[in-house]
Each structure stands twice: as C-alpha cells, then as structure tokens.
Design a protein around this nucleic acid. Structure first.
Length: 463
RNA sequence: UCCUCGAUAGCUCAACGGUAGAGCACCCGGCUGUUAACCGGGUGGUUGUUGGUUCGAAUCCAACUCGGGGAGCCA
C-alpha cells in the first residue's frame, strides 16, 4: 500500500482520485453520528487537513468515534469526491489503526485560544493552525534568504557564537564560563582571575557577527551570516528576545547606497518568495491575523522604499501637527513614536533613515564629509519599527582610530579589526536584519515570542 | 528597569462588600453528510501567593509572582 502525504493529494488530486492508499497523521477533530463520522486529519506535511469519512462497517468504529484529539492514526482508504462544500475530495476509510492514543485532557481545544495561553504550551502549539503557519513560513523565509544570497554569489560565513571581545558595543552580554560561581579564582587584587577560565580570558555569547563578517568580506567580497544572536538586556517588549536570529550581509567596494539597494532587494525577494511558496499560510495570516496583510506586502514589493536623511526627518517631525511625548531635537535619537510617525503616517511604507549624528551611532560607521554625521541607515517598517540597521564602515585607518579614541575604546581589543584597514582595506558596507522582526512583518504576528519556536526572554527559558 | 492594566473552572469570560455563574472543553445519551457539527443531561472552584481592613472579601488596601500594553535598550 502506497503511503501518501496529504500535501501530495492536495497538490495533485487527479493522480490520487479513486486510488486506494494509506495516510498517517494526527486527529484535529472528529464529528460523529450514529453510524458514521468525519475525521479531520493533519499529517504535518500540509497546512490543510484531509477529511476522512468512516462508518460502522469498520470493526473498531465505536473506538474510533470516541478518540480524543491529537491521537495518531494510520488510515487506509480510497480518495473519493466529497459532497461537502469545503473540500473537493475526501478519504473513504477502509481501515483505521490507532498508532498513538491521546488523552481527553489534551490542552489544545478545537476553539480559538489566546496567543498568551498557547505560549504556556510551546511544546504543543506548533500543532495549532496559527503556529503551524508561522513556523512553516519561518522555514520558507530562511530558505529564501539563503537562496537570495547564494544566487548572488555571497559566501555564507559561520561567525563564532562565543566571542572573546566584550567590546562590540551592542549592550549587555551573556557570560560563557566553566568557572564555578561558588568558588571563583581571584588574582592579587581580588578580581576574578579569568586566566584560569576555559579560554584563558573573559568570553561571552555573540551580540553580532559583524566584525568577523568584515574580515571575511575583505577576503570573499560578498558574505553573509545567518545565525543566533544573544542580548542579555532586560527588555520586556513584543519586539525583543534574549536569543534571536540575525542576517548580516557585508559587501566590499560598496557604499551606503549599495547597502540600501541590497537591503531593499533582499526584503522584496523574501516577501515574493514566501507569497509564492507558502500561499496557504499567507492567506491564513491575511484572514485571521492581519486583514490588511496581503495588499500591504504587495505594495511593498511593487513600490520603492522611501529614503530620508536624519536631518530631513527632524525637520519633518518638527513640522508635524502631532504632539510627541519626547521633544524633537537635532542630535537626539529618534524615539519609537517618531519612527512610527515617519513610516506609518508620512511614508506609509518602509523607509530608510540615513546619515545620523555620529554621537548616537557606533564607532565603526563611516564619518561623512560634514564631520557631524555617519553613513548609517535604519530601515523602518509600519507596525514593527526598526527591522534593519546598517552602515558603510569606516575604512580609513586614521579616522577609525580617532573615532575609537573618542569612544574610549582600547586599540588592543581591536588589533585584528584595525589590521583589516591596514592591509588592503576598501570601502565596504553591511547591515543586520532581525529575522524574527522580518517574520513578524510578513505574518502580521505582533509579538516576537510568537514567531520564535521556543522563545527566550527575561525570566523565561522553559522548554 | 520605569509607567499602566490585569490574574475567578482545562480555555474565554461574568459576578463590582452579603449563597461563585455562563459558553466552550470533558463525561453520558440522541442524531444517516458533518465543517469550531448539532440537540438533551451531567462533572468541574482553597477566586495567582502572603498579609491586612471588615460582622462578612473574588470584590477594599499592601507586598510579591506571573501575564498584556506603552517606554528605554535594539534587531
């Protein structure tokens, strides 16, 4: 007996109609009358369920009729046309075998659950419609990102998860150590003696692969990283997680305009790819999660992203009729309310804000000719906010060293990074895309905890 | 970390100082084409934790824990 995936039946029904075959999967719901019933079977291969019809000609009809949700079944039967309105065909069961019984107290009911409740059963929620769609889309989007870069001859770099420098400047880090916290070795001055630690120095989980990606960029010309990233910030928002995935391309012989063009092309490519390769999931998000989703994504694909300088943005915000809680002043960082106003009210589409004051940006960003701003860019999107942060990197060694001095950084900690400028440095640029934020944008899901399979946030590492 | 709202049955919620309730789930029964099936009956509670006010607290007060929204940090 041929075992067939539900996905194959839906994709190519003519090949299976009136054929006898076997399927296996989990019960989503059972509806029974006295002598017959229906099983909605999900086999994990496809977003939609296969409707199975069974009747009391089966020897185990009584048992099947009372099976609890989530029971695993193997079913042999014939694919036939369905008189029902909601599905063109169904499986007429000739044999139903219980592979793994479930229990009546199965927490996932056949009703709408709150996302908050589903978070408490993260091990079961991928079986729900919403999370089935979210995590299948996440997989498709990840593949789209690899395809985009591989098709353009980018080299995929696995930058280290454990980093030896605690000076990457992107906030609090998680310490990696094998020292016993109850018996820390001390040096002469009473400080913790990290020379006795595993690596002989302080180490942490990475907050960004950028510095290492730059090294590979100046060897391979076009590279990208795509991996987990860790921030120990005590953030408690729908947009932050302690462990998340970041995509960081880095391109040589390129400036900020090339960087923005790459970001825009990549985002449009991934959107298009997902719409084409996960249409059932995208349709689901549009119907049940975010009604305006599909038109909005189509609009993004078909329009040019906005570009505005930081200075122009400040002028626009000062002219805005809207009252802001935080004052708008050149030199101050844009607040979330300002970013939302720009992308949601003025542009109503993704917009790059570029050329920020150097004081509010990282040391490695290239100083502009005005000596006041750096070649940085943030991409803001409606509903999510900052989704990409990037810059052209400072390739001029004396300028970079001057900036590092201003920022109080120790050259010894960056000796290899400075070497990159010393030996054939070129202009280059790159950016970081928050993968989860991109997924949020594509699905309409409003909380980052609901696009991560097992989210790690402050006070939460269950599962 | 700050501001704010919340926590009552497995889930979603009501009861607003005076006997804890509904829908769904679950259990039992009915139903020959269902679509979150439908119809009838039933089980189900230390009202987040600790303390306080009161004759009496789910209800008022305090602290703590957890969750939502907003802010900061950022992706």
């Amino acid at each position: 007996m041929d075992e067939v995936l539900v996905k194959e039946i839906f994709r190519n029904p003519d090949a299976y109609l009136h054929r006898r075959l076997e399927v296996s999967g989990w019960v989503r719901t059972i509806r029974v009358s006295k002598t017959f019933g229906f099983i909605e079977l999900n086999d994990g291969s496809f977003f939609r369920n296969l409707q199975v019809v069974f009747d009391d000609s089966l020897p185990n009809f009584e048992q099947i009729a009372k099976l609890p949700i989530a029971t695993a079944l193997r079913i042999e039967g014939e694919v036939v046309e369905s008189p029902g309105a909601k599905q063109p065909w169904e499986l007429k069961a000739a044999r139903i075998e219980v592979e793994g019984l479930s229990q009546p107290d199965y927490p996932l009911q056949k009703k709408k659950h709150s996302l908050e409740f589903l978070r408490t059963i993260a091990h079961l929620r991928p079986r729900s419609n919403t999370f089935s769609a979210v995590f299948r889309l996440r997989s498709v989007a990840a593949y789209a990102i690899h395809r985009f870069f591989q098709e353009r001859d980018f080299v995929y770099v696995h930058t280290p998860i454990i980093t030896g420098s605690d000076c990457e400047g992107a906030g609090a880090m998680f310490r990696v150590t094998t020292l016993d916290p109850a018996a820390l070795p001390r040096d002469d001055r009473g400080e913790v003696d990290f020379t006795q630690d595993f690596f002989g120095k302080e180490t942490n989980l990475t907050v960004s692969g950028q510095l290492e990606a730059e090294a590979f960029c100046l060897a391979f010309r076009k590279v990208y990283t795509f991996g987990p990233t860790f921030r120990a910030e005590n953030s408690n928002t729908p947009r932050h997680a302690a462990e998340f995935w970041m995509v960081e391309p880095e391109i040589a012989f390129a400036d900020l305009n090339d960087d923005m063009a790459l970001a825009e092309e990549m985002l449009k490519y991934v959107l298009s790819y997902c719409l084409e390769h996960a249409p059932a999931e995208m349709e689901f998000f549009s119907r049940f999660i975010d009604p305006g989703l599909l038109p909005r994504l189509e609009n993004v694909i078909n329009s040019d992203f906005g570009v505005i300088t930081y200075t122009e943005a400040i002028d626009l915000l000062k002219k805005a009729k809207q009252n802001f809680a935080y004052p708008v002043e050149w030199g101050a960082d844009l607040q979330t309310e300002h970013e939302r106003y720009l992308t949601e009210q003025i542009f109503r589409k993704p917009v790059f804000v570029i050329n920020y004051p150097k004081e509010i940006k990282a040391f490695y960003m290239r100083l502009n000719d005005d000596q006041r701003t750096v070649a940085a860019m943030d991409l803001l999107v409606p509903g999510v906010g900052e989704i990409i942060g990037g810059s052209q990197r400072e390739e001029r060694l004396p300028v970079l060293e001057a900036r590092m001095k201003e920022c109080g950084l120790d050259f010894n900690d960056y000796w290899w990074y400075l070497d990159l400028r010393k030996y054939g440095g070129t202009k280059h640029a790159g950016f970081g895309l928050g993968f989860e934020r991109a997924i949020m944008y594509m699905t309409g899901m409003a909380n980052i905890r609901d696009v991560l399979p097992f989210p790690r946030t402050v006070n939460n590492a269950e599962f």
